[in-house]
């Protein structure tokens, strides 16, 4: 069975700080056989949504740090107060860890597929995310297609907070590898 290398593990452990990062299954090869597959997705089906993301200051800090962000609006309570935002908010793309947290290894797990490629994303932003928010996602399998020999899958996701306010709409697309058998074949081939 394929495993994450020690080199990769060491780098990950260096940056694991938050409670969520420590709890999260970061080896995407584990349970890979259970991930949803392109061929099994039925367009129109609702997915995701079993978990919520409770936003802690450390979650925003980790995202701010990992994107080398130095904007006071996202970094520091006192400075944020001096801006029209009046309080610290999360950067707009903070929805990335939210989606990976909520998808987990359950519904939406296809986004963990090893070797999946990001061809681009379409997102609308509404209410910003703040510390203490509880974010939910409602998703729907939106489109799947084959283009230039590659398989694309798009989910439409609506993010809302604990007050029921809309946070974001995301048309999220990935190019998924053809099949596990083919993937394994490639890995074997690469080892020669």
């Amino acid at each position: 069975m394929v495993k994450l290398s020690d080199e990769a593990r060491k780098l990950i452990e260096k940056y694991q700080k938050t409670e969520k990062q420590k709890e999260f299954q970061f080896d995407f090869f584990v349970d890979q056989s259970k991930y949803e597959k392109w061929e099994d997705v039925i367009i129109g089906t609702e997915g995701f949504g079993e978990r919520t993301f409770e936003v802690k200051k450390e979650d925003i800090d980790a995202y701010v740090e990992c994107t080398m962000e130095d904007n006071p609006v996202f970094k520091d309570e006192e400075s944020a107060k001096k801006t029209p935002w009046d309080e610290l908010i999360a950067p707009p793309m903070f929805i990335t860890p939210v989606v990976f947290w909520i998808a987990g290894t359950g519904s939406g797990s296809w986004i963990r597929t090893p070797g999946a490629i990001n061809p681009g994303q379409k997102i609308e932003f509404y209410e910003p995310i703040r510390v203490g928010d509880i974010i939910k996602i409602r998703s729907e399998a939106y489109d799947k297609y084959i283009k230039r020999g590659k398989r694309y899958l798009t989910y439409y996701s609506e993010f809302t907070n604990q007050r029921g306010e809309l946070v974001a709409k995301w048309w999220g697309t990935l190019i998924l590898p053809f099949s596990k058998a083919e993937e394994e074949h490639k890995i074997e081939g690469g080892k020669k």
């Binding site: 990769a8 970061f26 995407f28 980790a62 990976f100 081939g189």
Partner: peptide, 22 residues
């Protein structure tokens, strides 16, 4: 990868990325 929880080995694992040669 850690901050975004996207630990896909295509980003995180230089050894696997070399072997799979995507």
């Amino acid at each position: 990868g850690c901050g975004s929880l996207d630990f896909n080995p295509i980003h995180m694992d230089p050894i696997w990325a070399k072997n799979v040669n995507l």
